[in-house]
């Protein structure tokens, strides 16, 4: 319990550090946020510029700006968008679900398919199939998400009517909740596939390597010697242990998937946090950008924390040894 509390405290400290770091990085970037707020016709008015700087705290010393911002964030106030005046927290809340759905679906797809093909490859590591899977994994890992997304759009979405090109619902959709769910699923396929391909490559390689090690272990040899079927040996005895590192990585990568959705959401016009961030970068909408960065960082930190805690639960060795590898 002490270790868990310490871990939580560390995470909170890390979140605070992330907030300060993100704020600093954005404000150190070239360009003047006051110019953006003023718009293209008002920059000549020094009084207006002074008002803007005062309103947004841009006239205060940097350290004071940081302190004010951190204080606001702690109270749940992420500010308002420079672009349209809406609450940053509100904008993110509207889009969080879409990104979470996309990231979760992509990871589940990547996990299931990646582990499956990795396990297949591990059973015959020198076969042509195994080599092919390795090459495909490398290919998938190397492809930038925006490029694979565009390829899927051009060669799949346009050619096959079933796949929509953009958004998460048909523009003229009308139907009940179930039909809405199907429509959503239909729109989810290609973006999730695009995002999942990268992780699929990782999981297939990781599970292949892990299973190779597991299948050579003593207890697996014993299981075979007992006369158990190969299916039972692999899936019942081998996979459960072989999955541990994969599950660990999966938990850690939820945050990565969350942040990596930016390009995929832009290509597919998926209305999520990633697209919000993309628009904020183009518009230099600093409050929104900061809000997205903080949210993403928090998700990554929490995902790591949860993974760590779950790992302690499922692997008794960690509880006993305090995480030291024995």
């Amino acid at each position: 319990m002490k270790a868990i509390l310490a871990r939580i405290a560390q995470s909170l400290g890390l979140i605070l550090a992330v907030i300060v770091l993100n704020f600093s990085l954005i404000h150190l970037a070239p360009g003047d946020a006051a110019d953006v707020i003023a718009g293209d016709a008002s920059a000549s008015d020094p009084e207006l510029m002074a008002e803007i700087r005062a309103e947004y705290g841009l006239d205060k010393p940097f350290i004071q700006q940081v302190a004010i911002y951190v204080g606001n964030v702690v109270q749940g106030d992420l500010g308002t968008s420079i672009w349209d005046g809406e609450s940053v927290a509100g904008k993110m809340a509207d889009r969080l679900g879409a990104t979470a759905l996309l990231a979760f679906t992509a990871l589940v797809f990547a996990f299931v398919v990646g582990v499956s093909i990795g396990t297949i490859a591990a059973r015959n590591p020198t076969s042509a199939l195994s080599q092919g899977i390795t090459v495909l994994a490398l290919f998938g890992f190397s492809m930038p998400a925006f490029w694979s997304g565009l390829l899927l759009l051009i060669f799949v979405a346009v050619k096959v009517d079933f796949f929509p090109v953009s958004g998460n619902h048909d523009l003229d959709f009308e139907g009940n909740w179930f039909e809405s769910l199907l429509d959503l699923g239909q729109h989810l396929i290609l973006p999730a596939l695009t995002l999942g391909i990268i992780f699929l490559a990782q999981y297939s390689r990781l599970s292949r390597a892990s299973m190779l090690e597991v299948l050579e272990s003593d207890y697996v040899r014993t299981a075979r010697a007992k006369g158990l079927s190969e299916r039972s040996v692999v899936f019942k005895h081998g996979l459960r242990n072989g999955l541990i590192p994969v599950v660990t990585v999966l938990g850690l990568q939820f945050g990565v998937a969350f942040s990596g959705a930016i390009l995929v959401e832009t290509v597919f016009a998926w209305p999520g946090i990633g697209r919000l961030a993309f628009d904020a970068v183009l518009r230099r909408d600093v409050p929104v950008l900061l809000g997205v960065l903080i949210l993403t960082s928090v998700v990554v930190i929490i995902a790591n924390l949860v993974t760590d805690l779950v790992y302690r639960i499922i692997d008794p060795r960690i509880r006993v040894t305090g995480g030291v590898n024995v």
Partner: peptide
């Protein structure tokens, strides 16, 4: 009239091709 806000011009082009 449905005005679909699209961030990427390529997506708009593909959407037109797709009949969206």
């Amino acid at each position: 009239i449905i005005i679909d806000i699209v961030p990427d011009p390529n997506t708009a082009i593909l959407g037109l091709e797709n009949g969206d």
